[in-house]
Protein backbone atom coordinates (compact mmCIF):
# COMPACT_ATOMS: atom_id res chain seq x y z
CA UNK A 1 0.00 0.00 0.00
CA UNK A 2 1.48 3.32 -1.04
CA UNK A 3 -0.10 5.17 1.86
CA UNK A 4 1.86 3.13 4.35
CA UNK A 5 4.74 4.60 6.26
CA UNK A 6 7.93 2.69 6.73
CA UNK A 7 6.20 0.49 9.30
CA UNK A 8 9.37 -1.27 10.41
CA UNK A 9 11.00 2.07 11.11
CA UNK A 10 7.94 3.24 12.95
CA UNK A 11 8.14 0.25 15.28
CA UNK A 12 11.83 0.92 15.85
CA UNK A 13 11.19 4.56 16.53
CA UNK A 14 8.56 3.66 19.10
CA UNK A 15 10.44 0.93 20.88
CA UNK A 16 10.81 2.18 24.43
CA UNK A 17 13.25 5.06 24.65
CA UNK A 18 14.81 5.48 28.04
CA UNK A 19 13.75 8.71 29.64
CA UNK A 20 16.77 10.90 30.16
CA UNK A 21 17.58 12.80 33.29
CA UNK A 22 15.73 16.06 32.74
CA UNK A 23 17.97 19.06 32.13
CA UNK A 24 18.53 21.61 34.88
CA UNK A 25 17.22 25.15 34.90
CA UNK A 26 20.29 26.59 33.26
CA UNK A 27 20.41 24.02 30.44
CA UNK A 28 16.69 24.44 29.75
CA UNK A 29 17.18 28.21 29.56
CA UNK A 30 20.09 27.58 27.21
CA UNK A 31 17.94 25.45 24.91
CA UNK A 32 15.39 28.26 24.60
CA UNK A 33 18.14 30.81 23.96
CA UNK A 34 19.34 28.52 21.16
CA UNK A 35 15.81 28.44 19.78
CA UNK A 36 15.62 32.26 19.74
CA UNK A 37 18.94 32.47 17.90
CA UNK A 38 17.89 29.87 15.32
CA UNK A 39 14.67 31.81 14.76
CA UNK A 40 16.68 34.96 14.21
CA UNK A 41 18.47 33.19 11.38
CA UNK A 42 15.32 31.54 10.00
CA UNK A 43 13.17 34.66 10.06
CA UNK A 44 15.35 37.44 8.71
CA UNK A 45 12.25 39.64 8.33
CA UNK A 46 12.42 40.12 12.09
CA UNK A 47 15.63 42.04 11.53
CA UNK A 48 14.46 44.31 8.71
CA UNK A 49 12.92 46.98 10.95
CA UNK A 50 15.80 46.72 13.32
CA UNK A 51 18.26 47.45 10.52
CA UNK A 52 16.37 49.68 8.10
CA UNK A 53 14.91 52.18 10.56
CA UNK A 54 18.11 53.09 12.43
CA UNK A 55 20.07 53.33 9.18
CA UNK A 56 17.36 55.52 7.67
CA UNK A 57 17.14 57.77 10.72
CA UNK A 58 20.88 58.16 11.08
CA UNK A 59 21.34 59.10 7.42
CA UNK A 60 18.24 61.28 7.22
CA UNK A 61 18.73 63.27 10.39
CA UNK A 62 22.46 63.74 9.90
CA UNK A 63 22.29 65.01 6.35
CA UNK A 64 18.88 66.75 6.43
CA UNK A 65 19.08 68.52 9.77
CA UNK A 66 22.70 68.16 10.87
CA UNK A 67 23.93 71.53 9.61
CA UNK A 68 20.79 73.35 10.67
CA UNK A 69 20.72 71.90 14.18
CA UNK A 70 24.38 71.74 15.13
CA UNK A 71 26.21 73.85 12.57
CA UNK A 72 27.78 70.84 10.80
CA UNK A 73 26.83 67.25 10.02
CA UNK A 74 29.93 66.01 11.86
CA UNK A 75 29.06 67.83 15.08
CA UNK A 76 25.47 66.60 14.88
CA UNK A 77 26.47 62.98 14.24
CA UNK A 78 28.59 63.13 17.38
CA UNK A 79 25.43 63.87 19.39
CA UNK A 80 23.02 61.81 17.31
CA UNK A 81 24.78 58.46 17.14
CA UNK A 82 24.63 57.50 20.82
CA UNK A 83 20.98 58.56 20.64
CA UNK A 84 20.29 56.39 17.61
CA UNK A 85 21.83 53.50 19.48
CA UNK A 86 19.26 53.91 22.25
CA UNK A 87 16.44 54.56 19.79
CA UNK A 88 17.28 51.34 17.91
CA UNK A 89 17.52 49.19 21.00
CA UNK A 90 14.16 50.48 22.27
CA UNK A 91 12.56 49.80 18.91
CA UNK A 92 13.82 46.22 18.72
CA UNK A 93 12.70 45.21 22.20
CA UNK A 94 9.06 45.02 21.11
CA UNK A 95 9.90 42.02 18.92
CA UNK A 96 10.52 39.94 22.03
CA UNK A 97 6.89 40.53 22.94
CA UNK A 98 5.71 39.92 19.39
CA UNK A 99 7.52 36.57 19.19
CA UNK A 100 6.01 35.48 22.51
CA UNK A 101 2.54 36.54 21.36
CA UNK A 102 2.91 34.62 18.11
CA UNK A 103 4.05 31.53 20.01
CA UNK A 104 1.05 31.78 22.32
CA UNK A 105 -1.41 32.21 19.45
CA UNK A 106 0.01 29.36 17.40
CA UNK A 107 -0.15 26.98 20.34
CA UNK A 108 3.61 26.33 20.19
CA UNK A 109 3.84 27.02 23.89
CA UNK A 110 1.12 24.51 24.83
CA UNK A 111 3.47 21.64 24.20
CA UNK A 112 6.25 23.19 26.27
CA UNK A 113 3.84 24.02 29.06
CA UNK A 114 2.63 20.41 29.20
CA UNK A 115 6.20 19.17 29.67
CA UNK A 116 8.02 18.75 32.98
CA UNK A 117 10.39 21.70 33.03
CA UNK A 118 11.31 24.84 34.90
CA UNK A 119 8.70 27.23 33.54
CA UNK A 120 10.56 30.55 33.57
CA UNK A 121 13.22 28.96 31.30
CA UNK A 122 11.16 29.58 28.20
CA UNK A 123 10.91 33.33 28.67
CA UNK A 124 14.29 33.85 30.29
CA UNK A 125 15.93 31.87 27.48
CA UNK A 126 14.07 33.66 24.71
CA UNK A 127 15.09 37.02 26.14
CA UNK A 128 18.68 35.87 26.33
CA UNK A 129 18.58 34.82 22.69
CA UNK A 130 17.01 38.13 21.76
CA UNK A 131 20.06 39.90 23.12
CA UNK A 132 21.60 38.59 19.88
CA UNK A 133 19.08 40.69 17.98
CA UNK A 134 19.98 43.83 19.93
CA UNK A 135 23.66 43.14 19.36
CA UNK A 136 23.18 42.94 15.59
CA UNK A 137 21.29 46.22 15.35
CA UNK A 138 23.59 48.15 17.68
CA UNK A 139 26.64 46.89 15.79
CA UNK A 140 25.11 48.10 12.54
CA UNK A 141 24.43 51.55 13.97
CA UNK A 142 27.98 51.89 15.30
CA UNK A 143 29.45 50.59 12.04
CA UNK A 144 27.43 53.06 9.99
CA UNK A 145 28.42 55.89 12.32
CA UNK A 146 32.12 55.07 11.97
CA UNK A 147 31.73 55.09 8.18
CA UNK A 148 30.07 58.50 8.36
CA UNK A 149 32.90 59.95 10.42
CA UNK A 150 31.84 59.30 14.01
CA UNK A 151 35.02 59.40 16.10
CA UNK A 152 34.17 58.94 19.79
CA UNK A 153 36.74 60.30 22.23
CA UNK A 154 36.08 57.40 24.61
CA UNK A 155 37.66 55.01 22.09
CA UNK A 156 36.95 51.30 21.94
CA UNK A 157 36.35 51.04 25.68
CA UNK A 158 33.81 53.85 25.54
CA UNK A 159 31.93 52.31 22.62
CA UNK A 160 31.94 48.78 24.04
CA UNK A 161 30.73 49.90 27.45
CA UNK A 162 28.11 52.02 25.68
CA UNK A 163 26.88 48.94 23.79
CA UNK A 164 26.93 46.81 26.95
CA UNK A 165 24.86 49.36 28.86
CA UNK A 166 22.28 49.72 26.11
CA UNK A 167 21.98 45.91 25.79
CA UNK A 168 21.39 45.61 29.50
CA UNK A 169 18.77 48.33 29.41
CA UNK A 170 17.06 46.74 26.40
CA UNK A 171 17.01 43.38 28.20
CA UNK A 172 15.19 44.91 31.17
CA UNK A 173 12.83 46.81 28.89
CA UNK A 174 11.80 43.70 26.97
CA UNK A 175 10.11 42.38 30.12
CA UNK A 176 7.57 45.20 29.64
CA UNK A 177 6.76 43.83 26.18
CA UNK A 178 6.47 40.25 27.37
CA UNK A 179 4.05 41.47 30.05
CA UNK A 180 1.97 43.30 27.45
CA UNK A 181 2.15 40.32 25.08
CA UNK A 182 0.40 38.22 27.71
CA UNK A 183 -2.32 40.85 28.12
CA UNK A 184 -3.23 42.01 24.61
CA UNK A 185 -5.52 40.16 22.27
CA UNK A 186 -3.66 40.46 18.97
CA UNK A 187 -0.07 41.08 17.88
CA UNK A 188 -1.32 44.21 16.08
CA UNK A 189 -2.34 45.72 19.43
CA UNK A 190 1.19 45.19 20.64
CA UNK A 191 2.69 46.92 17.60
CA UNK A 192 0.27 49.79 18.10
CA UNK A 193 1.17 50.08 21.77
CA UNK A 194 4.83 50.12 20.92
CA UNK A 195 4.32 53.05 18.54
CA UNK A 196 2.25 54.92 21.08
CA UNK A 197 4.88 54.50 23.76
CA UNK A 198 8.13 54.56 21.81
CA UNK A 199 7.58 57.49 19.49
CA UNK A 200 6.72 60.08 22.15
CA UNK A 201 9.43 58.70 24.44
CA UNK A 202 12.16 58.86 21.81
CA UNK A 203 11.18 62.05 19.95
CA UNK A 204 10.35 63.96 23.13
CA UNK A 205 13.82 63.31 24.45
CA UNK A 206 17.28 64.63 23.74
CA UNK A 207 17.95 61.99 21.03
CA UNK A 208 17.47 64.27 18.02
CA UNK A 209 17.26 67.84 19.29
CA UNK A 210 18.95 69.81 22.07
CA UNK A 211 16.33 70.44 24.81
CA UNK A 212 17.71 73.99 25.28
CA UNK A 213 15.86 74.98 22.10
CA UNK A 214 12.49 73.71 23.37
CA UNK A 215 9.69 75.61 25.15
CA UNK A 216 9.84 75.30 28.92
CA UNK A 217 6.94 72.87 29.45
CA UNK A 218 8.36 70.48 26.89
CA UNK A 219 11.84 70.80 28.32
CA UNK A 220 10.51 69.73 31.71
CA UNK A 221 9.12 66.55 30.17
CA UNK A 222 12.23 65.89 28.10
CA UNK A 223 14.53 66.29 31.05
CA UNK A 224 12.45 63.93 33.18
CA UNK A 225 12.25 61.35 30.37
CA UNK A 226 14.33 58.29 31.31
CA UNK A 227 15.33 57.94 27.66
CA UNK A 228 17.09 61.31 27.91
CA UNK A 229 19.07 60.10 30.91
CA UNK A 230 20.12 56.95 29.09
CA UNK A 231 21.14 58.97 26.03
CA UNK A 232 23.14 61.45 28.13
CA UNK A 233 24.95 58.55 29.80
CA UNK A 234 25.61 56.90 26.42
CA UNK A 235 27.09 60.17 25.06
CA UNK A 236 29.27 60.52 28.12
CA UNK A 237 30.47 56.89 27.86
CA UNK A 238 31.45 57.36 24.23
CA UNK A 239 33.14 60.64 25.06
CA UNK A 240 34.98 59.00 27.92
CA UNK A 241 33.50 61.42 30.46
CA UNK A 242 30.84 59.26 32.11
CA UNK A 243 30.55 59.43 35.88
CA UNK A 244 29.86 56.43 38.09
CA UNK A 245 26.67 58.13 39.22
CA UNK A 246 25.32 58.29 35.65
CA UNK A 247 26.02 54.61 34.97
CA UNK A 248 24.67 53.48 38.33
CA UNK A 249 21.53 55.53 37.68
CA UNK A 250 20.86 53.64 34.44
CA UNK A 251 21.64 50.30 36.09
CA UNK A 252 19.22 51.06 38.90
CA UNK A 253 16.52 52.01 36.42
CA UNK A 254 17.09 48.75 34.54
CA UNK A 255 16.97 46.78 37.78
CA UNK A 256 13.75 48.52 38.82
CA UNK A 257 12.02 47.77 35.49
CA UNK A 258 13.12 44.13 35.68
CA UNK A 259 12.06 43.81 39.31
CA UNK A 260 8.54 44.90 38.42
CA UNK A 261 7.96 43.38 35.01
CA UNK A 262 9.82 40.06 35.20
CA UNK A 263 7.68 38.72 38.07
CA UNK A 264 4.59 40.21 36.42
CA UNK A 265 5.40 38.39 33.17
CA UNK A 266 5.93 35.11 35.00
CA UNK A 267 2.71 35.53 36.96
CA UNK A 268 0.69 36.18 33.80
CA UNK A 269 2.46 33.35 31.97
CA UNK A 270 1.67 30.85 34.71
CA UNK A 271 -1.98 31.85 34.89
CA UNK A 272 -2.54 31.79 31.13
CA UNK A 273 -6.10 30.74 30.26
Amino acid sequence: MTASLATGNLHDALSPIARQTLPGRLSTTGVFAWRALVKLRRVPEQMTDAIVLPVLFTLMFTYLFGSALSGSTGAYLHELLPGTLVFTALLVTVYTGLVLKTDLDRGVLDRFRSMPMWRPALIAGSLLGDAGRYLVSTTIVIGLGLLMGFRPAGGITGVLSGIALVLLFAYSLSWIWTTLALLVRTPATLTMASFLVQFPLTFMSNVFVDPATMPGWLRTFVEANPVSHLVTTERALMDGTATTGQVVGVLLAAAAVTAVFAPLTMYLYRSQR
Binding site: R19, L22, P23, R35, G107, V108, D110, R111, S114, M117
Partner: peptide, 28 residues
Protein backbone atom coordinates in the same frame (compact mmCIF):
# COMPACT_ATOMS: atom_id res chain seq x y z
CA UNK B 1 1.79 12.61 29.06
CA UNK B 2 2.31 14.07 25.64
CA UNK B 3 0.10 16.44 23.73
CA UNK B 4 -0.57 17.15 20.10
CA UNK B 5 -2.86 20.09 19.60
CA UNK B 6 -5.77 20.54 17.28
CA UNK B 7 -3.64 23.08 15.52
CA UNK B 8 -0.25 21.52 15.08
CA UNK B 9 1.76 22.99 17.91
CA UNK B 10 5.14 22.90 16.25
CA UNK B 11 7.29 25.90 15.48
CA UNK B 12 6.69 26.83 11.86
CA UNK B 13 9.76 29.04 11.70
CA UNK B 14 12.09 26.17 12.51
CA UNK B 15 12.93 23.21 10.28
CA UNK B 16 11.60 19.73 10.96
CA UNK B 17 14.86 18.53 12.40
CA UNK B 18 15.26 21.66 14.57
CA UNK B 19 11.80 21.11 16.04
CA UNK B 20 12.62 17.54 17.04
CA UNK B 21 16.10 18.37 18.34
CA UNK B 22 14.56 21.15 20.46
CA UNK B 23 12.05 18.70 21.89
CA UNK B 24 14.71 16.07 22.61
CA UNK B 25 17.07 18.60 24.23
CA UNK B 26 14.26 19.75 26.52
CA UNK B 27 13.79 16.13 27.55
CA UNK B 28 17.43 15.89 28.52
Amino acid sequence: ISLTGQFASIDEDLTGVENLVLQARLLG
